[in-house]
Design a protein around this nucleic acid. Structure first.
Lengths: 229, 229
DNA sequence: CACCCCCTCCCCATTTCTTGGTAGGGGTAC
DNA sequence: GTACCCCTACCAAGAAATGGGGAGGGGGTG
C-alpha cells in the first residue's frame, strides 16, 4: 500500500522505520521498504543505519523535511556524507522524510525517496506528511499490541541523582548538593541503574533522557545559569 | 495568524502549548491562545495544565485527535473529567488537538476548539493537522534559537567512541569493537570531552545528543538488534 | 614545502564508578 | 498489622574513567 502511495505521490520508493523504546534488553525495531535491493544489502552489510544522517535528523524534527535540508538540521560528518553519496549511486537521489516520536515509547520515520530521474513533488509534500504520519501511527497501533512492559520508573530521589549525574557531577558532589551522604547517592544511582536495566552511568542518563524522566532543558537550564558553557 | 487560521478551518478558538521538559516537575513552557478569558484565568489559577487530560492524551499519540476520543486514548480520572466539564461551561465544547514530540527536548500541542454552537469540521481536520504541526514546529524553532552551541565538532572517530560510550560500553570494549587500541579510545574520548568543554563521560554523551551528533535511534537501534530483533 | 588536522599508539598517577552486601525509620496500601 | 516502597546510611574490593604528558604517519591546503 505504501509503495503504491509513494508512486501516486510522485515518489519512487518508501521506507518505514519504527523503533520501540522499552529499554536496553526488551525492545524491537521494524523496517519496511522497497528500496533497490543492492542498496538495502549494502546498508545492512556495512551497518549504515548507525551512521544514517536521515534518521539522526529525524530525531531533531517534529515534521517532514527534504533530504536536501539535512545539512541545515544537523552537522554532517564526512562519513555521513559518504553514506549519502553511496545511496545516491544506488539510485536514491533525493527524498522526503516524516519523523514522529512518542517519548519513552517509540520513534519512527517514514521516508519517500526519489530515483535518479525523479523530482521532488513539492505540491504533494503536505499530503506525503499526512500519509507518512498515518502509516507510522497505524504501524505503532498494530505493533504496540501485547507490549506494555513499563518497568518501574526511578523514584524522585533517584531522578534527582540522575539529573545531577547528567550535569556531570560526581557522586560526592551530588551528595553535597542534595545534602545527603555520599553512600546514599551511590545507592540511589545503583538502584536507578537496576530499574533501567543498565550498568553504566552514561547509559543510565541516556535511558532517563529518552524515557522523559529528565530532559535537556532540565540539564541545560542549570548549565547556562552557571555561566559554565 | 493562528486565530484567523482557526476561523477559516471552521473552529472558534486555538491554543498552542509547548513544554520544554518532559520531567514530572519543573520545566518551562509556552502557551498562546485565544480562549475566553474567564476560562484562561481559571486554567492558570488552578494550574490545570498538570491535570489536563488533553495534554496527557497527547503524550500517547503521534497525530491529531478530537476531544471526543480522549476517553478511548487514556482512562480519565475524576479530576480530569471535572477539568473537562469546567471547560465546556466556559464555552469550550469540543476540539481537535495536534500533538508533537521531540524526546528529551520538547512536547507540545496545538488545539483548535469549538464554541457551544460549533460542529467539528471533519473535512478540514487533515488541514488542521498540517497547520497545527507547522505552528508547533515554528514555535519550537524560535524557542530553541540561541540554544545551539557552536564549538568545533568531534571527528568521525571521536563520534564513534561517543556513540559506543552512550551505549554503555567501556573504553576497552570500544577498542575491541572499533579494532583500535585501548589507549586510542581513551584519547578520542579525551579530545571529544575537550571539544564539548566537559570533563565527564555522562555529560559528554548528553552534549553529543543535544548537539545532534548522535541520536537516540543511533543508540537504541543497536540495543534492539542485540536482544529483541 | 610547511602547516594543520586527523588517527593512531604509548606512558603514568589519581579519581571515580560499579558491584556486592546490610540495615533502620517513615509512609502507605491492603 | 503486615507488607511494601522509599529514603537514608554504611562497608569494601575491583573495574573504569580522568588528566597529564609525548609521538609518528597520512591527507589536505595555502
Amino acid at each position: 500500500m505504501l509503495a503504491r502511495g509513494a508512486r501516486e505521490l510522485g515518489f519512487d520508493h518508501f521506507a518505514l522505520n519504527l523503533d520501540f523504546a522499552h529499554g536496553p534488553e526488551e525492545g524491537t525495531s521494524l523496517l519496511f521498504h522497497d528500496y533497490p535491493s543492492a542498496w538495502a544489502e549494502t546498508y545492512v552489510a556495512f551497518d549504515l543505519g548507525k551512521t544514517d544522517p536521515i534518521r539522526r535528523a529525524g530525531d531533531q524534527r517534529m515534521h517532514g523535511f527534504p533530504w536536501s535540508n539535512v545539512s541545515d538540521i544537523i552537522p554532517l560528518t564526512s562519513s555521513e556524507v559518504r553514506t549519502f553519496r553511496t545511496g545516491q549511486h544506488h539510485g536514491l537521489v533525493d527524498g522526503y522524510t516524516i519523523p514522529r516520536h512518542l517519548p519513552g515509547q517509540a520513534s519512527g520515520t517514514c521516508t519517500f525517496a526519489l530515483g535518479p530521474d525523479g523530482r521532488l513533488p513539492v505540491a504533494m509534500l503536505d499530503v506525503a506528511e499526512l500519509v507518512g504520519a498515518a502509516a507510522l501511527a497505524a504501524t505503532w497501533r498494530l505493533a504496540r499490541h501485547g507490549f506494555v512492559p513499563r518497568w518501574r520508573r526511578p523514584t524522585d530521589r533517584q531522578r534527582d541523582c540522575i539529573l545531577w549525574a547528567a550535569r556531570g557531577k560526581t557522586d560526592w558532589e551530588i551528595s553535597r548538593i542534595l545534602g545527603i551522604s555520599h553512600g546514599t547517592v551511590i545507592q540511589h544511582l545503583k538502584e536507578a541503574r537496576e530499574r533501567y536495566n543498565t550498568r553504566k552511568r552514561a547509559s543510565l542518563v541516556v535511558c532517563a533522557l529518552f524515557d522523559g524522566l529528565i530532559s535537556f532543558s532540565d540539564i541545560f537550564r542549570w548549565w547556562y545559569t552557571q555561566g559554565g558553557g
